[in-house]
């Protein structure tokens, strides 16, 4: 479904992604790990279409279409979802109105009538239960006054409502206590199917105890430097990132010679 080919991107003139290659197929769970500052969040922002980032090279295909040519909203309609590392607070916009606008925008894109109020509320109720999100949060402003855990659960709730084909979860585990982590991970697992895929971006192995990846990538200095099975995550947990860094430096030095 997703083919990333030699993707390069920069922000404020600084190159962050230096040639990313990645392929994701339906039903797969990918984990992207890497030390701080390696470009993990940039990759998620570029895939979701954040206009603050400039793509300087490469291509991304999403179900055969040119993802990079699409606006962020069209990427969403086409089935891409980004769970934000820092969900944005929007005071004055209620969660309910926000989700109704989102759902109806997608329906409009596919030439469907807006959802009726009762249908919509019923769906909200069902989807809330996926992450045990309190009803009262739904009537509040988007993420405003939410705790860290509530914000992340709210991301998964939105994912449940929008039913994406590919979800990118950026550090969804950061700032979560163990109970919240379990609820969030269970939510993600409930939404998993043979037709959709997930990219989990994480710094630690912890989340991968709950969301089992099929493939683990290591991102370092803007490139994917290692790809392997789930055992790679365990190795990282044990040995840290230093050996990866050393390996990369050594290869680079060899190439220079």
């Amino acid at each position: 479904m997703l083919k990333v080919n030699n993707l390069r991107a920069e922000i404020n003139g600084k190159e962050i992604l230096k040639g990313i290659n990645l392929e994701v197929r339906p039903g797969e769970v990918h984990a992207i790990m890497g030390p701080n500052g390696s470009g993990k969040s940039t990759l998620s922002m570029v895939l979701a279409g954040n206009p603050s980032y400039d793509v300087t090279g490469g291509s991304v295909e999403f179900y055969g279409k040119d993802l990079l040519a699409m606006s962020p909203e069209v990427r969403s309609h086409e089935g891409l979802f980004l769970g934000f590392q820092y969900p944005v607070e929007i005071p004055g916009v209620s969660m309910v109105n926000f989700m109704r606008a989102a759902v109806n925008a997608k329906r409009k894109y596919f030439g469907m009538e807006p959802m009726s109020a009762s249908e919509f509320l019923k769906m909200m109720r069902e989807k809330r239960s996926v992450v045990e999100l309190d009803n009262k949060l739904a009537s509040r402003s988007v993420n405003e006054g939410f705790s860290g855990g509530e914000k992340k659960r709210n991301e998964i709730f939105q994912m449940a409502v929008l039913e994406p084909r590919l979800s990118i979860l950026d550090e969804t585990d950061s700032g979560l206590d163990i109970d919240a982590l379990r609820i969030v991970a269970e939510g993600v697992n409930k939404l998993k199917s043979a037709d959709n895929a997930t990219i989990v971006i994480t710094h630690y192995q912890r989340l991968l105890d709950y969301i089992k990846p099929d493939i683990v990538h290591i991102l370092y200095k803007g490139r994917i430097v290692k790809t392997a099975g789930p055992e790679l995550a365990l190795e990282l947990e044990e040995r840290g990132y230093d050996w990866i860094k050393e390996e990369v430096e050594r290869k680079d030095a060899e190439q220079r010679r």
Partner: peptide, 23 residues
């Protein structure tokens, strides 16, 4: 960007944000 990433068109997102600002 957050709103657009959820499927709201840019103009609609701006509209909601302006309304919200006055709320």
């Amino acid at each position: 960007f957050y709103m657009r990433s959820r499927g709201l068109a840019e103009e609609e997102a701006k509209l909601l944000l302006k309304q919200a600002f006055l709320s």
